[in-house]
């Protein structure tokens, strides 16, 4: 919940979440560590400070919604949902295993706390907008936080969604672009340039903020400002892919490669 920022508490949560991400992906021998580590601080700020939510009542009508449009980064959201108590932490041991409710990409019907099924890129943005439109129709007060990857918004659908949100004045939408400049095949500006990114969203009618996505004060203050906007808001959060595990930082190799035993040990030693 909002109020004074407890930096130490958020740092402690982020450390636990990052350790959980490394463990989950190492155990499953499958999954996406880089983007999950990079987005951790934003999700921690949302779930442990900003969002109105209650793990004991996942269907609470006026809860704020979080939609992980960059759906491959399930490790970070699963770690947080488990820590919050949406489901038992032991469930994390089943990530990406047959019979688990923790699918490789978010599956809303099965996982408590997951608001929308996402996976193929671009879809989650539009789904979040549909949810936000419904809230407008029903005069509900909650916010819709939508996390996109920077590579993800190379999808044409992202820009369809950008137009749609502007048309219907969905100022209950607060989006994030996890701007780490890396995607599966390399540096985003080599693969398919996105810069200048802020003017793109602005020209589509969104209010845009650019922040350091690892600075809790900036994340929280910006979201508080975003809530006052009369337009949909996109927060371009500059992040470091692999943040917190130095040998993974800014390395595209850590997009979708699971750490082996040695790498796992080294990563966990760094996350203390």
């Amino acid at each position: 919940m909002s109020g004074e920022i407890n930096e130490a508490f958020l740092q402690e949560k982020a450390l636990k979440v990052r350790r959980s991400i490394i463990s989950m992906v190492h155990r499953a021998n499958s999954g996406h560590v880089g983007g999950s580590l990079g987005a951790t601080d934003i999700l921690v700020a949302l779930y442990y400070h900003l969002m109105n939510h209650d793990p004991k009542d996942p269907a609470m009508a006026d809860r704020d919604r979080f939609i992980l449009s960059k759906g491959h980064c399930t490790p970070v959201i699963y770690a947080i949902l488990a820590d919050c108590g949406y489901f038992p932490e032991e469930d994390l041991l089943t990530f990406r295993r047959p019979g688990s409710h923790l699918q490789g990409h978010p599956y809303q019907p099965k996982t408590p706390g997951i608001e929308a099924s996402t996976g193929t890129l671009g879809l989650g943005i539009s789904t979040g907008l549909g949810m936000a439109l419904a809230a407008k129709l029903k005069n509900q007060p909650q916010y819709y936080y939508i996390m996109c990857g920077d590579g993800e918004i190379q999808e044409g659908q992202a820009w369809e969604a950008a137009m749609f949100a502007n048309k219907y004045k969905l100022n209950n939408v607060i989006g994030f672009v996890d701007r780490n400049y890396l995607q599966t095949d390399g540096f985003s500006e080599d693969i398919m340039p996105l810069d200048p990114l802020a003017p793109k969203w602005e020209s589509f009618g969104w209010q845009v903020f650019t922040i350091d996505g690892h600075n809790y004060g900036e994340i929280i203050d910006t979201v508080e400002s975003a809530k006052k906007s009369d337009r949909p808001v996109m927060i371009i959060a500059n992040t470091i892919k692999g943040k917190g595990v130095t040998f993974m930082e800014n390395k595209v190799e850590w997009h979708g490669t699971p750490p082996n035993k040695d790498e796992y040990d080294r990563a966990m030693a760094l996350l203390t």
């Binding site: 549909g130 439109l133 419904a134 369809e160 969604a161 137009m163």
Partner: peptide, 21 residues
């Protein structure tokens, strides 16, 4: 809601609307 020439966005928006009842 006329989504314009955006069939892809329209179907995902419809999914979001249904998630909220």
């Amino acid at each position: 809601f006329n989504c314009g020439v955006q069939e892809q966005n329209m179907l995902s928006v419809a999914a979001g609307l249904s998630l909220e009842g």
